[in-house]
Every structure is written in structure tokens, then in C-alpha cells.
Amino acid sequence: MGITRTIIIVWSWKAAGIGEGVWQVAGSANANDLVVCRDWPVSQEGDTQNLAVLIRQYLQQDGEVMLFLHRYHGYSQEHLKQIIQQAPEGQQERLRCFLFGEGADAIYLTSNSKGLLGTSGTFSAQLNRDGQPLDVSAIADAERRLLKSAHFDYIWDIYQLALRRRIFEFKEDLFNCLGQYLPQMTFEPGELYPLLRLPENRMLFLRLLSFVGRIRKGSDLANEIRIFERNNNRTLTFDDCGIQLETSYGASAAEQYALLAAYVLRNVLAKGNAVSLLELRERFEELLEQISGLTYHS
């Protein structure tokens, strides 16, 4: 028997969906794969004790856990921090936590046909492909509560690499924009900010703000970047990123992230020092070096 891989999803399962419960994975090479569905909004006190207990249960005996928290259930970066800190010492690296919502992340079947979540608290959805309805489902056998292994494996694999991929794509997209000003290699203090504020760079500008932690939960900017996520079927925010780098990849990864975020905040988004493209690239490379592993599964 292999290691237990558990995906815990806190979402709207109860109101109109299939309800809370535990689903197994049909025909998986790993007999212990599970998906645990819970519909637990953040408590008024904001404590995450119930989730911590649930996670601990599945982390036992070398289990690995991936936790997905629906933003509309009230979860934010602070809750992720709490949850990770409550995981037993030495087991934090086996826990990955993500915030999701707005139908925009890879976990949704509407974003990605190998996803898990359908519409209204289910594992199924109807897509529109070239004007024709197409039913997609992650369910292998509803009566026996079995999910398809291809969907489970895909989500597990893609979210294992999610942090590195998100940062790599952010770097490339940023250079797509800055490359338009080549051969200029250095930008004077404050010179980049107005360029990034141009309407055509709006999505990139919001990603920069998210990267440096300058988008407040529930703000207009938060809503705006969610719209970009939904329209582009991509996770563009970094609110679940910083804390996880430390637990999954170690203190030096978190440190590099903090250094890069500070550099961007001070020099790219404000009038700190001049920005050299070579230095900016080097800082991204130093961060990516700390996040070991693949960026994509081929």
C-alpha cells in the first residue's frame, strides 16, 4: 500500500450539491487516495481548529495532504498560515494549502476538463464546446463514491508544481512587457511605474500588486484580479504563495521570495532605486532555484 494522498476540499457541498463525505479513487495505482469534502465556512472567531484536526488525521503514517479552501467561505492567507502552523512539527512539508474560487482555478472542470469540481457542489459540469453541450465529470461511480483516477492524479500533479509554475509564468509575462523597451536595460527610479499602469498592462500590474501583498481581501483590486483569473482560466494571485514556500521548500525559498517582493515593491512599484533588468532576472532565478522540481508535467 502506498502513501495516503488526501485532497481536502472546503466548498459549497451542502446547499445544492452532493453533500459532505469521503470519496475514494477508482483504479488508482495508489489504493489510499481520497477526496474529503467539507462545507465549513470560517468560524466567527476565525479559528481553524476543526480543519487542523482533520488534516492531522490524514497526515498520519506519512500521509500527504492537499487542502483547498474556498475564498467565499471566508478563507484568506491568514487562515492558511494558521493551518500550516498547527500541523505537527516535521509534517508541514507534507501539507499543501491553496485558496480557490470564482471558477478560475485548474481544480474546476469548467477551467480544465481533467479537474475535479463541477457546478454547485458537484463533481460534474456541462461545458459548451463550439456551441455544443459537453458533459464532463470526475465521477467514476456515484453510488460507490468513486472518482476517476485520471482527474485525481492530474489535480495532484498540477498543484504539486503550482507555486513554481505560477512564479515562472509571472517572470516570463513580466519580461514580455519589459522586453518591449529593450535595448533599455535600466529604468530610473519611478520610471517603470507609469509604464506598468498603462491600460494594456493592467493584468500584469495587478499580479505585481498581489506578488508584493498589496491587494486587500474583498477590495476592488481583489475583485478585479479575480475577473482576470476567471477570464483567463489561470491563477494569477499570490496570496497563498509566501507561507507555503517556507513549509514546502524551506526558509531560504521564503527568504528569496521576501527579497524579491521587497525589491519589486520598492523599485518597480515605487521610486526606490533604478531597476536593472539583469538584476531583476537574477532575483527571479535565485527564487526559482530554491523551488526545486519541475515547472510542468509534459
Binding site: 517572470k171 536595460m185 532576472r281
Partner: peptide
């Protein structure tokens, strides 16, 4: 935009 050590590769930041 990557640093790649390869005979046929041009680094856009070092044209």
C-alpha cells in the same frame, strides 16, 4: 529571456 549556455542561443537581455 533565460540564460542558456548554448551555441545557437541569443539572450534577449544581452543582445
Amino acid at each position: 529571456y533565460e540564460q542558456v549556455d548554448y551555441v545557437n542561443h541569443l539572450d534577449l537581455l544581452r543582445l
